[in-house]
Design a protein around this nucleic acid. Structure first.
Lengths: 234, 234
DNA sequence: AATAAACTGCGATCGGTGTTCGCAGTATTA
DNA sequence: TAATACTGCGAACACCGATCGCAGTTTATT
């Protein structure tokens, strides 16, 4: 076992001590700059050096606030989770309420495409905002059927569906050149004759219909409303 | 727009020219070594240097076979796709056949956990094996209801469900210390009193039941059998 | 008031990464 | 035979995350 034991998360370390001079920056500020950087140029553009440059300091200084770049990624993820509005009190319709919550989460992914990449390469660490989110989702499911375990798994599964749809919408919306090149290559290969079904499907199915955001949300909502009752006893 | 136009995939470039001396290696060999490396020590362990060392050559030599590390990742993904057995001819039960195919894909993910990380950070590029897979899936859906577009989207969605379940199973199976540390932290936070629903859920739901692989497959199969009819007209 | 302790900012640096360049050697083509 | 196009690869480039140690600053203790 080469595993190093699980270091405590960013949030278990105190933001600052009480002894020295007041820090010139704080985690919120650093996180905001990192999110802005990722929004602008993607997750790869968020290097400690670039971030330090953005903040007008040296790279080494950032390590007074973060133990590692992974800490920064955790903070970024939780910051986006905090964008979800949890103020709406749960009504009687738990399916509707959970669906609305999922739609909000999907919208957050649309605003910050790099979130997909982030949560993929890094198992989600529950920050304070994520815990609030989880508590809210459980509140919504209070009067829903099913055991607590089932509810927890359902919330996780809905989160997975959110990422699934977010990915799909991200690749079909602003993809630009990627899908056409892929489609061309696929058509060329299919034309060679060894993939009759692909050929037929490409002939039948025209180019992308390109639904609007409203249509996409409606599709997602319909799917959730159909699946959710089955997941929780009903 | 800082986007560089879509470079052709690995497979559109010829494996080798006709002029010079015979290459000492080929892509299949290199890909196999990379997969072995990833299986053993994770995707991060697959660096060009480590791979070259494994093959007994210099890092620069690899660039005679691959234009970039991304090419290597594409080859690795397609190699794993090639592990899926497509020899079984489609029977009349398209739901059963598609479910069996999905179970195979899920098993491949279990054998190569790094696949999740790979497909996440890199939009799937359709290699030859992936095209074979797609053609086979479309063959299964020949007599299923729905338009060609619906069938293509269904296949993609099923693929997404595979990754979702693979991720879930990967994190709950060999996770080790991660979940317990997370759970402890969560319990501590919930005990502070501001997250009553989380607290209640943790009290009710005991530790992980830890199902066997058969149970997990059965769960996945049940979900697919319930969802699939709804996706394709029915 | 004097001292000790703990903290901040950060230049310099380490080991690692993907990738490129140029050159010597080799096989094919004209 | 000469030109051409390839192979293998050592050296190097730019960048990355992270660490070390030091000067300066603030708080806590005596």
């Amino acid at each position: 076992m080469t595993e190093h034991e699980p270091r405590p998360t960013v949030w278990s370390r105190p933001e600052r001590g009480t002894r020295g001079p007041a820090p010139e920056r704080d985690r919120r500020q650093i996180t905001a700059a990192a999110v802005a950087l990722a929004d602008a140029d993607g997750l790869a553009a968020v290097s400690m050096r670039a971030l330090a440059r953005e903040l007008g300091t040296g790279p080494a200084s950032l390590y007074r606030y973060l133990a590692s770049r992974d800490d920064l990624l955790d903070l970024m993820a939780d910051a986006v989770t905090g964008e979800v509005d949890l103020s709406a009190a749960p009504g009687g319709d738990w399916i509707g309420d959970l669906t609305a919550l999922a739609l909000q989460a999907k919208a957050a992914h649309a605003r910050h495409p790099w979130l997909l990449e982030l949560t993929a390469q890094r198992g989600s660490v529950l920050g304070p905002n994520a815990i609030d989110y989880l508590d809210h989702a459980l509140a919504i499911l209070t009067h829903a059927p099913g055991t607590s375990s089932q509810k927890l798994e359902t919330i996780g599964f809905v989160g997975g569906l959110v990422t699934l749809f977010a990915r799909h919408e991200a690749t079909t919306t602003a993809g630009g050149a990627t899908p056409s090149a892929q489609a061309a290559h696929l058509a060329a290969v299919a034309a060679e004759g060894r993939h009759p079904h692909v050929l037929a499907a490409l002939a039948t199915a025209g180019p992308a219909p390109s639904d609007g955001p409203a249509d996409r949300d409606a599709l997602f909502e319909r799917l959730l409303r159909r699946i959710l009752p089955g997941l929780l006893g009903s």
